[in-house]
Every structure is written in C-alpha cells, then in structure tokens.
C-alpha cells in the first residue's frame, strides 16, 4: 500500500472546463515518487490539459492537485518542477546558449553551477555543435531537444514532459530515455505524455486517457493482459474503441 510519503502527485476529482467545454472529468490519480508515468490517449483526449494541471500552470475547475504534499497551484512549487510544453516556447532570435542561460537564471541558477548544468544538458541532447546558432535556424527536432534541455536544467524533482520526442530520431530518443532512467534512479519522478508505443513500454506505469476521462491505469504488462493484447498499441486501440 503506498503511503503518502511515497506519493509524488495526487489528483482527486479533477475536472477542467473552458467556457462551456468540458475537457477533463472526474480524474483520480496517484503518481508514485521515482516512477516514470506515461499518459496515453488520442489527440484531443485532454492529456496536455491534464499535465498542465500537474505542472501547476493551470488550475482545475473542481478537484485538487497535490504535488509533494503541497496543494497546487503554488508559485514556490514551480521551482521544483521541470516542464516541457508540447509546442516549443523558445526565443527564436537568440541562440540556444542564450535561451538556456535565460531559463537557467530564471530558475535561480548562476555562475559555475549554471555553466555546469548547461554543459550537461547540452551534451545530453546533442546540441553542442549548434549552441551558438539562432534558434530560428533549428529544425523541429532540434527545437524539441532544446526545450527538453531547458526543462532539465535545474534538476527538478518532478519532470513533466508533453510529447517530448516528437520529431526526434530513434537513436537520440534512446539516449534521452537512458537519461530519463538515470534521473529517475536519482530520485526524480517523471510524467510523460506520448503517442510512441515503444516509449509507453518503457514507462513504469501508464494511464490511458480518452474523452477527458482516465479509463485505465496500470503497468504496461498489466494493461496488455487485461485487454488480451500483445502490444501496448493493441491495448491502446482497444481502449480507443477501435479493437473490439
């Protein structure tokens, strides 16, 4: 039984609506510390809205989100979270280095510590050669990598990544996942939304979201068994209503 000490994030009765539109309904979820939790679901199911609630940058209409024991949203908690949005929010006219420096300083890093972290994350995402070029010249995959580097720069306790590896080739994807596992081993919790089924398999536990509801939670193996599927993709299609 998971004690409250082991719980990184607790969402209770979450609903979120915009104007008249109900985007999320009645979501209850516990995410453990030091686990990689994946959120899967068709486009428009509400995954992005949900992780924004987890990251504390949006507020639920009803229900509560508690992160590391603190009720969200709370400005001071944001320093402990690393968030990577679905669409890159980078300063196009600046270089990658300047972007990293800005966001790093924003997170309270400075001097040698900042330099060290910058070197680390840059090497991780493989942008060393392109560091001084303006971001406007980057391909989509490169921008994604930079966004990831920025989310990692302050060594957050909770990492929230929205479709992090879209447009990134498999080799880079692999090394990113290796780093994610290392981060988890160091004690951080990682929440990922993804479409890539291979990545779903690498998560410790998965949550399937459809039409704003959480319809299944479990380990990849568990979900496959429950739906009689060989692959996560089949399980997904089952929950998506395509497979009978």
């Amino acid at each position: 039984m998971a004690t409250s000490d082991d719980i990184c994030l607790r969402a209770a009765g979450i609903s979120r609506s915009f104007g008249g539109r109900q985007v999320l309904q009645d979501i209850d979820l516990d995410i453990q510390k030091s686990e990689i939790f994946g959120l899967l679901g068709p486009s428009g199911a509400g995954k992005t809205t949900l992780v924004k609630l987890f990251a504390g940058i949006d507020e639920a209409t009803t229900g509560s989100v508690d992160l590391l024991g603190t009720r969200l949203p709370k400005l001071s908690m944001l320093q402990r979270i690393g968030y990577m949005a679905q669409s890159d929010a980078l300063y196009m006219e600046l270089s990658a280095r300047e972007n990293l420096q800005f966001f790093g300083e924003l997170m309270g890093l400075g001097g040698q510590a900042l330099k060290r972290r910058m070197n680390h994350v840059v090497e991780l995402v493989g942008l060393g050669e392109h560091l001084r070029k303006p971001v406007s010249s980057y391909s989509g995959g490169m921008k994604r990598r930079l966004s990831l580097a920025i989310a990692l720069i302050h060594e957050p306790e909770v990492l929230i990544l929205d479709e992090p590896t879209v447009g990134i080739d498999p080799v880079m994807r692999q090394s990113i996942w290796d780093e994610l596992r290392q981060i988890r081993a160091a004690g951080a919790t990682i929440i990922v939304t993804t479409h890539v089924m291979d990545e779903a398999d690498k998560c410790d536990r998965l949550g399937m979201v459809r039409d704003g509801r959480l319809i299944a939670v479990g380990t990849p193996e568990g979900l496959k068994q429950d739906t009689g599927s060989h692959t996560i993709e089949e399980a997904f299609l089952y929950y998506g209503g395509v497979r009978p």
Partner: peptide
C-alpha cells in the same frame, strides 16, 4: 507559448 513556459518558471 512563452507565457506558459515562464509561468512554469514561476514568473508572475
């Protein structure tokens, strides 16, 4: 897009 990121970095 940036406002989101900045908010996540605790910018008011």
């Amino acid at each position: 897009g940036k406002v989101e990121m900045l908010r996540a970095a605790s910018i008011g």
